[in-house]
């Protein structure tokens, strides 16, 4: 339930968040200055390709990265509390009861040797002083809530006995066990069939409305994001290069990278016999990031200015912001936003 005191302050506040992995001989700058706020009851989708830092950002919210090799900097607040300063016990309290996470592969996230009922009741009793019977009754209600058929019987099932869609529902039930205010979803529908994916998206939307959850939904699938998100943030090389309300970002994208991503999904883009527009090249190496805009070397509009330094966040609408040096020089919407590029010559 959203806390009334914090109804007007954001549930999640990231300011200039940086996450660096230090391994011998190498420093991988996975997240390089992310600014993001998620309000109570808001659904924000983080979109990006692999290596863009979207999952690293998400896991940082619960400080799930190995402490020894990970270096954090910047501001990371959840429900007004500084996560980077938390001790072990505070962190354990945060995980589960304030913030919970669901993953892409429930079979790996769930424990194979305990029944689902045992796993959920354990989570409940870890955080609340209730009897075993009461915890089980709550688990049953959760199973009903996520619409698992014959829930009573399914509580005694092991993860491997269920289908992919049912396992994902069970993982959502487990995540909701301690009534978190924030749900973090890391590609929860990527491994599912389209027919099951839409069921899970609808379920998440319904739970979000009913429980007033804030959701951060990480995906590379713009379609899945469009089905669930109020706002969207597009990541590239560890930065949010554009964020705004979902409808606005999808219809009036400003950053050349967002435009190219969306263009590949737009109507007519996949016409038979027509070559697909591609973004040439590959994302930069996160251990050797360029000084300038990280997208510059793949960008059709790059100029000298783009190589000099990081573009600042520029507001282009009430909640819409973009990081691009050449924002004013970009052609208007509908113009040729992408040069047709032959693949590697």
């Amino acid at each position: 339930m959203p806390d009334m005191q914090t109804a007007h302050s954001p549930m999640i506040r990231l300011h200039d968040l940086q996450v660096e992995f230090r391994v011998p001989g190498k420093r991988v700058q996975a997240v390089n200055g992310v600014n993001l706020e998620v309000g109570p009851g808001e659904v924000v989708a983080l979109i990006g390709e692999s290596g863009s830092g979207k999952s690293v950002t998400l896991r940082a919210l619960m400080r799930l990265h190995p402490e020894r090799t990970t270096h954090y900097a910047g501001t990371l607040e959840v429900a007004g509390r500084d996560v980077l300063k938390m001790g072990k016990r505070e962190l354990a309290q945060l995980r589960g009861s304030s913030v919970a996470m669901i993953f892409q592969e429930p079979l790996l996230a769930l424990d194979p040797v305990y029944t689902l009922g045992q796993q959920i009741t354990e989570a409940i009793r870890q955080h609340a002083p209730v009897s075993r019977a009461e915890a089980r009754a709550r688990a049953l209600r959760l199973f009903e809530k996520v619409r698992i058929p014959s829930p009573e019987r399914r509580l005694d099932a092991y993860p491997h006995e269920m289908s992919g869609g049912m396992r994902q529902r069970a993982m959502i039930a487990l995540a909701l066990a301690c009534e978190p205010q924030v749900l973090l979803a890391d590609e929860p529908t990527t491994a599912l069939d389209a027919t099951v994916q839409i069921q899970i998206l609808l379920l998440l939307r319904e739970l979000q409305r009913e429980l007033g959850l804030s959701i951060v939904f990480v995906t590379h699938d713009i379609g899945a994001a469009a089905e669930i998100a109020d706002r969207m943030a597009v990541m590239y090389a560890g930065r949010i290069i554009e964020q705004g309300p979902a409808a606005e970002l999808l219809t009036r994208p400003r950053h050349p990278y967002t435009r190219a991503l969306l263009k590949s999904r737009s109507e007519g883009a996949m016409q038979k016999g027509r070559r697909l527009d591609t973004i040439q090249g590959a994302p930069p190496d996160l251990s050797r990031l360029p000084a300038g805009c990280a997208f510059a070397e793949r960008c059709a509009f790059a100029a000298e200015t783009c190589l000099g330094g990081q573009p600042e966040e520029t507001r282009v609408g009430p909640e819409h912001s973009v990081r691009c040096w050449r924002l004013d020089e970009l052609p208007a919407q509908g113009g040729p936003v992408q040069r047709a590029e032959p693949v590697n010559g």
């Binding site: 027919t195 069921q199 609808l202 899945a224 469009a226 409808a247 999904r265």
Partner: peptide
Amino acid sequence: SMPTTDPLRRTEQAPLS
């Protein structure tokens, strides 16, 4: 079941249960 890319025309009911 294919997701739309239009947040104003979201799927309201799953085509298959």
